[in-house]
């Protein structure tokens, strides 16, 4: 039996908004520690790893491991019916054929209850070795989102060049080119505005702008984004949840 109560439906709303355009079908693996998802987009370029730990819930219990095979578009339709400020409880029996979602309005005692049919989703699970990264950038997620949107107007490829104290986003297209350079700095009042760069080795990697613009749909989830890069390896873009994370592993583009 799974019973997980969010204080606000907004958290799951933001998570679904961040994932639904990249992956259509997901297995939500529910254990006593929380809910985890691993899914790969249709082009097999972007791997998404979600962990919503029990600490993200007001109340959480899952006394037997349950797999919820969910069609993201249908889940999104139901989530949109609830108010972001409603409490949201997820309920499922052991070996369930449906997921129940209960929205409770804190004030007017209005209760909306939905049942979402589950699907049998056969998904391969990729093992992601913990790896040492050559560079780690912590920066405001809104700033990263703007850079990805702006650079995409110029080209379908975005180059990321990191030296000891700056990150350069570079885009070269048919009608022109552009670049944005950000430097390390600490904002003592508003720490979420800070930019922190940790560099072991210089980085020069290119990624698909389309995928970066899928990744930045996570921006409402967290004020900062952590970007971890290693030469010739997928980049990791991580958005922290109250307890857990939403991670995107993006395969790079190589010079022909």
């Amino acid at each position: 039996m799974l019973e997980g109560k969010f204080d606000e439906a907004s958290l799951l709303k933001k998570v679904i908004d961040a994932m639904k355009d990249s992956v259509k079908l997901c297995n939500f693996n529910c254990t006593e520690n929380g809910i985890s998802v691993q899914a790969i987009d249709d082009s097999r370029v972007l791997l998404i790893s979600l962990l919503i730990e029990a600490g993200s819930f007001e109340d959480y219990r899952c006394d037997r491991n349950i797999v919820l095979g969910l069609e993201m578009e249908s889940l999104n339709k139901i989530i949109k019916n609830g108010n972001a400020s409603d409490m949201l409880t997820l309920v499922a029996e052991d070996s369930p054929d449906a997921l129940n979602l209960i929205f409770e309005d804190k004030r007017r005692d209005r209760i909306a209850e939905y049942s979402l049919k589950l699907m049998d989703i056969d998904q391969d699970f990729l093992k992601i070795e913990d790896m040492k990264f050559d560079a780690v950038v912590n920066m405001p997620s809104a700033e990263f989102a703007k850079i990805c949107r702006d650079m995409k107007t110029l080209s379908e490829s975005l180059q990321i060049i990191i030296t000891k104290d700056s990150v350069k986003f570079n885009s070269e297209g048919d009608f022109g080119s552009g670049s944005v350079v950000i430097k390390s700095f600490t904002d003592l009042e508003k720490t979420e505005e800070s930019v922190r760069i940790t560099l072991e080795k210089p980085i020069n990697l290119t990624f698909g702008a389309k995928y970066l613009n899928d990744i930045i749909k996570s921006t409402p989830l967290a004020s900062q984004v952590t970007i971890k890069l290693c030469d010739k390896q997928p980049a990791l873009f991580e958005y922290q949840l109250p307890s857990g994370y939403l991670r995107f592993y993006l395969a790079p583009k190589f010079e022909d």
Binding site: I40, S43, R44, V45, L46, L47, D124, F125, L126, K127, I128, E129, S157, T206, G208, Q233, P234, Y249, L250, A251, P252, K253, F254, E255, D256
Partner: peptide
């Protein structure tokens, strides 16, 4: 010109 590679090139099936 740059060529996109897929994620399976880096991570193996469990």
């Amino acid at each position: 010109e740059t060529r996109q590679v897929i994620i399976d090139k880096f991570y193996s099936d469990e």
